[in-house]
Design a protein around this nucleic acid. Structure first.
Lengths: 346, 346
DNA sequence: CTCGGATACGTTAACGCTAACGTAGATTCT
DNA sequence: AGAATCTACGTTAGCGTTAACGTATCCGAG
């Protein structure tokens, strides 16, 4: 409206400095090609006029938005904020920002979000725990310059992939419980649509098979505390003799702990409980939760770094597997060990 | 490069359908002005050609990006994911997406992020717990079409504001502890730069003043678990007779609980501990944490709705105050009450 | 002093989309 | 029948930026 200095755009600065917009663009992008005096005048004017480069125009012109789409199932699950922080730290160092989307465990919504992000011409996407079937996911990812999947694998030309070795991790967890002498083990299996959930089951079954034990009962549920509590209730009502639970994630495990506490079952004496992920919360609940731990922040960094490589057309590695590490805490501890399970403050 | 159908853009569809780009634009934006047959053909072609409207170009043209900037201090604090979910749900219903940024408790970085978001021409920002001084914050917000602050207030024309009544809440917490008979109360005060922290202190001091008690000792710290533990250590080493702690937030309180557990102080017998925020975590730790609870999801929704109004130029209300609610759990319970403090599963 | 090559700029056009305006034909009204 | 209105489109231009290319000036080497 105001015709003088209104839009505070590049051309106004150019006019004020008596140079061409191109010169201003060059100076402001640090690409040189201007005398020190001209550059100084331009910088000063830009500052005075509170000029902010228009990233939208730049994106249109250059076909690079400087934005990375990140899709997570549920930001309220403490697993994902850690991952996001890792992603963000690398992204920010490289001049990218994050467009964050929550799927809330709905495949339909996931597809929708992937489309929307494409619309926004993000320079890449990181999909955490995608729930879509392979074919649909591949198709949805076609339009992207670069994509990285966490806990999911597709053809390497479609997307890079960082996966947690849930098979091995779950087998480790199962063996840990077997070593404790537990034989009536059940599984709180998380969402049916989760690929990671299926992998965990395979790992657990193979561990049981290799010692000649029966395959454990499985109940599926939402991957949160309430889901875990409900699943525990279902399992323990049907099979009161269960003496150990392997849970899809720590939230499910904590839900199970809650149910056990409410029904006066002692953990780990009556029932051992182990989770997955290694969220901080697991150290805070009582009994402290045993878990298959992964470094979520590092995984976030890995995702973003791989995505950056793909954006740059460098396909150095398209597959990274992270092995979870067993952390034994009170919820699966033998009694004599449990005594010394205290936090230490100097 | 490929000249036929390469860029899958609007003009290609227009060519293929034998109409003008404008007609395609109209159809694809559901603005009518085309015969049913033409519209059908266009829709079909758009689908076949896997056309995705270019939100960047649209944003440049219309000066509306469809993106909301959200700045939080620390996404790993469970307070914020809840808020974000509330924001996102309203945003998504209205066709907006979230550009999320983590400040990690640095005012400099905060300023930087606000600038970057401006560059991206977001349609509005929601700043959660801004740490910048008033003047700098006002200035940084000048370039925005719309802004809403959580837990901070500026001139209504600069930004809308949703605040938690920390003064009243903290006074309630203080009175609760006084009613319990505690007289050696100390405060774990959170970050010195937090405006909310100062408000809490005022509330606490006034509550103490009105019963003629001394103003409590205060120690500041980072608003996370480690910060709370460190602050508790500092306080209890200097003043071993402290019998209650009011904490900046639940994370600080949980840190304090950890320290108490490690140093064999019984909560609430030796020390009562109360937090702020009402994060789920507080119900999961033992003893369960008393807290001044606020509905974080609802607050997120409020923020986004207020922002939408401001984007539309409707300044219906520019200030909403949410009153926190005292939730008494085991960490400040009298012993006879504590017995029945159990979760109930049917 | 002349020429090759820096240096310091300017011009043009295009990124994909749509507001604003224009027009031709069909329909309705008086 | 002529005017007024409506429908279904097309044309032009511009959002802010920058790649690509063009040009003028100056400086030192031969």
């Amino acid at each position: 409206m105001n015709s003088k200095v209104s839009k505070t755009k590049l051309a106004d600065i150019a006019r004020a400095a008596g140079v061409s917009p191109m010169t201003v663009s060059r100076v402001l992008n640090g690409r040189g090609g201007a005398s020190p005096e001209t550059a100084a005048k331009i910088e000063q004017l830009a500052d005075e006029m509170r000029y902010r480069p228009n990233a939208v125009a730049r994106a249109l012109k250059s076909d690079r938005s400087g934005i990375i789409g990140v899709v997570v199932p549920d930001i309220a699950n403490p697993f994902f904020p850690d991952v996001i922080r890792g992603v963000e730290s690398v992204a920010m160092q490289n001049g990218y920002n994050l467009l964050l989307c929550n799927v809330v465990e709905s495949a339909e919504r996931e597809l929708n979000l992937v489309r929307i992000l494409e619309t926004h011409r993000v320079d890449g996407v990181i999909l955490c725990s995608a729930r879509l079937p392979d074919a649909a996911l591949s198709k949805a990812l076609q339009g992207y310059k670069a994509a990285v999947l966490l806990n999911r694998t597709l053809a390497p030309e479609t997307a890079g992939s960082i996966t947690i070795d849930y098979r091995a991790g779950a087998a480790d967890a199962a063996r840990h419980l077997l070593n404790l002498g537990r034989r009536k083990v059940a599984v709180i299996g998380g969402p049916t649509t989760s690929v990671g959930a299926a992998e965990r089951l395979e790992g657990i079954r193979s561990a049981f098979l290799s010692v000649g034990a029966d395959s454990p009962v499985v109940v599926h549920c939402m991957p949160d505390i309430a889901g875990g509590a409900a699943a525990a209730a279902e399992l323990l009502k049907a099979h009161p003799d269960i003496d150990a639970l392997i849970c899809y994630n720590d939230l499910n495990a904590i839900g199970a702990l809650q149910y056990c506490e409410a029904t006066f079952r002692s953990v780990p004496k009556d029932i051992a409980v182990i989770g997955f992920d290694g969220i901080t919360l697991g150290e805070l609940v009582r009994p402290q939760l045993s878990t298959m731990h992964v470094d979520k922040y590092a995984i976030g960094e890995l995702c973003m770094r791989m995505l950056l490589d793909r954006i740059d057309g460098k396909f150095i590695q398209h597959r990274i597997v992270v092995r979870p590490e067993l952390i034994v805490r009170t919820s699966t501890m033998l009694e004599q060990q449990a005594i010394s399970g205290q936090v230490d403050f100097a």
